[in-house]
């Protein structure tokens, strides 16, 4: 039995780009309901204001090539295409300079969404927010005609939505996210190794997870970087975990490993837990900062729109 039900969303409403997104009448999904779609529309409009240009394949690579947007000059070297010589400059300087144009190509955006058991703990849980976040960002990517792929993972890559393009594909994203079933424990290095092997085309990799990996998150992210993927880290956490209200003698059961720890929780231990968690999060942030990886930390209880806008404003996702 699937962990989450998915609903079929009417595809015809996505035929026109300008047409507002609208869920089918029989859609009863709570995660991706009509209200959510309105939020996506709003976020898209905001992203348009933040980003520059309205071109097809608006993401510009760093390559200088055959695009139409002027990028820079460089001195002519034999063998260059003479059609790109800038004669106006030659007339002023009597030196040959070549006009360079930005190369435009489709950007691949991969959403690596943690689907381990820890993401499904509680109600609401991190998984619900993670897939909303993934869907929102995917929608922006689809609207920008990027190639979007969703890859849920836990100890391995549990499933994969093939790269797709176009705004109309958002419901495909929804459907995929809806039918995802919980995975097992988190092992990023294994899952990411599988991912890089399966996806040769480098691109932006948005990793949405709580990063509760017993073997550590560093190795997994390093694998992405090594294979020239551009990681973007979104750490989700639940404030309820930090506000551990139950005190006294308890059995702590790890929801992923099933490991049991008997202990007596005291206020001091709760405070210590917060400190340890903060330290853990800071380690992740420090790791990302040092490697110029975009890092976002979001609480489950935080407003979804605020988080998305925060990502937009930070740049990196919108270029």
């Amino acid at each position: 039995m699937p962990y989450c039900r998915y609903r079929t969303v009417g595809f015809e409403s996505l035929l026109s780009r300008e047409a507002p997104l609208r869920a089918s009448k029989d859609s009863t999904s709570k995660t991706f309901d009509e209200e959510f779609l309105k939020k996506l529309e709003y976020l898209y409009i905001v992203s348009q204001k933040i980003a520059a240009g309205k071109f097809r394949a608006k993401r510009k690579t760093r390559l200088v090539g055959s695009g139409i947007d002027f990028a820079d000059h460089r001195q002519y070297t034999p063998g260059d295409d003479v059609r790109n010589l800038d004669w106006r400059v030659y007339r002023r300087t009597e030196k040959l300079f070549l006009k360079l144009y930005e190369e435009e190509e489709d950007l691949h955006i991969y959403f690596l969404v943690d689907n381990s058991r820890s993401m499904h703990l509680g109600n609401p849980n991190k998984w619900q927010v993670a897939r909303q976040l993934a869907a929102a960002l995917a929608y922006i990517g689809l609207c920008n005609l990027d190639r979007v792929s969703i890859v849920p993972f836990s100890s391995h890559v549990t499933d994969r939505m093939a790269p797709t393009r176009g705004k109309a594909q958002i419901f495909k994203v929804f459907n995929f996210l809806e039918r995802c079933e919980p995975g097992e424990q988190t092992t990023m290095k294994d899952a990411f190794r599988t991912f890089v092997n399966e996806n040769k085309r480098a691109g932006l990799v948005v990793v949405i997870s709580d990063y509760y990996d017993p073997s550590g998150f560093e190795e997994g992210l390093d694998i992405l970087r090594y294979h020239r993927f551009e990681p973007m880290v979104i750490q989700l956490y639940d404030r309820r975990e930090l506000e551990f209200s139950l005190q006294g003698d308890v059995e702590l059961v790890d929801c992923e490993t099933g490991e049991v720890r008997k202990m007596t929780v005291t206020p001091a231990m709760v405070r210590e837990y917060r400190r340890v968690f903060e330290e853990f999060s800071n380690d992740l942030e420090t790791y990302c900062t040092r490697r110029q990886i975009l890092y976002f930390r979001a609480a489950l209880q935080q407003s979804f729109e605020d988080l998305v806008l925060k990502i937009f404003r930070a740049g990196g996702f919108l270029k």
Binding site: G248, V253, E256, Y273
Partner: peptide
């Protein structure tokens, strides 16, 4: 003792080790 499910026991292990 009452059983409580937690998302990530290594953090608690660290707490217990410290305490």
């Amino acid at each position: 003792k009452k059983s409580v499910e937690i998302p990530f026991s290594p953090l608690w292990s660290q707490v217990m080790t410290t305490k």
